[in-house]
Design a protein around this nucleic acid. Sequence first.
DNA 1: TGCACAATAATTGTATACAATTTTGATTGT
DNA 2: ACAATCAAAATTGTATACAATTATTGTGCA
Lengths: 239, 239
Amino acid sequence: MPDRKDAHRLHDLFQLPQGRTLDICLKIHGAILEHRLAPGTKLSEDEVGEIYGASRTVVRAALQALAHTGLVAIEKNRGAFVAKPSIREAHEIFEARALIEPRVARMAAKAVTGKDLARLQAHIDAEHQALHAGDMGKALFLSGAFHTTIADIADQQVLARMVRSLISRSSLIIAMYWKRPDTACESHSHHALMKAFAEHDSDAAEEIQKSHLIDLHSGLNLVEVRQQNDSLKDILRAG
Amino acid sequence: MPDRKDAHRLHDLFQLPQGRTLDICLKIHGAILEHRLAPGTKLSEDEVGEIYGASRTVVRAALQALAHTGLVAIEKNRGAFVAKPSIREAHEIFEARALIEPRVARMAAKAVTGKDLARLQAHIDAEHQALHAGDMGKALFLSGAFHTTIADIADQQVLARMVRSLISRSSLIIAMYWKRPDTACESHSHHALMKAFAEHDSDAAEEIQKSHLIDLHSGLNLVEVRQQNDSLKDILRAG
DNA sequence: TGCACAATAATTGTATACAATTTTGATTGT
DNA sequence: ACAATCAAAATTGTATACAATTATTGTGCA
């Protein structure tokens, strides 16, 4: 569950001082992370504005902020759509994560406190619970939150912001290219990380995070493309 | 000189489809990178709009985009100001660069072509020329362009975008905290990089870039802060 | 003189109206 | 039946007007 503190940290991702605009950003962001909004979905300004009771002005600002983080793609005179990361982009994003996050994990292992450990454990528990309840979207959301929390613990705002953006985009990638229906494989790495953090073992934390991300990357089916839009014709003809 | 291609690449940094908004973004961005706009300068919407002949709507969008990259700070109900990176932020940014750019240089060394080498050389020459003409701002701008060009050569859009943002912010940091009045120290590293690229020596490229960034970092005076705004009183009293 | 308070001016936040562009659907001709 | 062309509708791009907030200035009082 995204508590007040998480929301405050997210503020940094969008750099928006306006409360109304930020609210809409966070809501759409959350919907994308929980896979309630599918990649490619059109986000009409009027429609979004009506839903949240806001004028197009603030909706536009929110969509542009989301576009800047890569979660939304704006096409000239066509509007905003939930981004559909290409295979190439997916590779790049997970390579970037594999570069940055191990370093962040190392820093976090040094700075971590007992309170932080409790926070991380809460994320793991909540994820486990969501998984048990069959709420895949929420479980995925919390899995990402685990990673962003690590970045917060490391207390490196510049890197934390990058990590947050990469993880959000990863959520889109997983929505499009995830191979296995089970996400249980992750929990092992997260537990191992917890252990390393508890022992302030920065070498281990870095190494575990590195292989964890390689695992995630390899868990994606990035060979074949499902051009859902382009193959629509074939799909309907087959029926 | 920022040619058409550079401008096109910059488009990626802001993710703005609207031409008018993007234009203003690029102009302010350029002014900041060339140190024509000092950190802390207020960017009034009306004022900027009048200068570029645009309405507040597009100016606002441009300022928000710049805020998202960290070049501008927007304060609620107070307006937009050219960002003033803190010492801590400066450390974080150069640490992030030291993490990311060596990897990018490694990739670039593998992918570099003869045409790319010529492009890099052109940057070096132009920088040398600007330096000779005493145009410090332009020289600094081109020095940054050298780094972003490397990221483009590596052909990793995700990392390239991060690098671009970090370099732009570095320009602000240099404006605030640069110690030495001579920038000649840099050209040595850039030449060494050129050599590594020409030989496709990725190990060397990575290592050179790493130490180059450490050099830059240590060239900053990040101990004392010059609170230029707060010392206004002292300045006027001294006269 | 110094401080507190109030009125004014200036600036940002938001909504709405109009212009430009794209998409959709219909009509016509082959 | 199919393609092309054109008109209508819907959507985004931009400008402007109004509301809310902040900064500044002026005034009165201790």
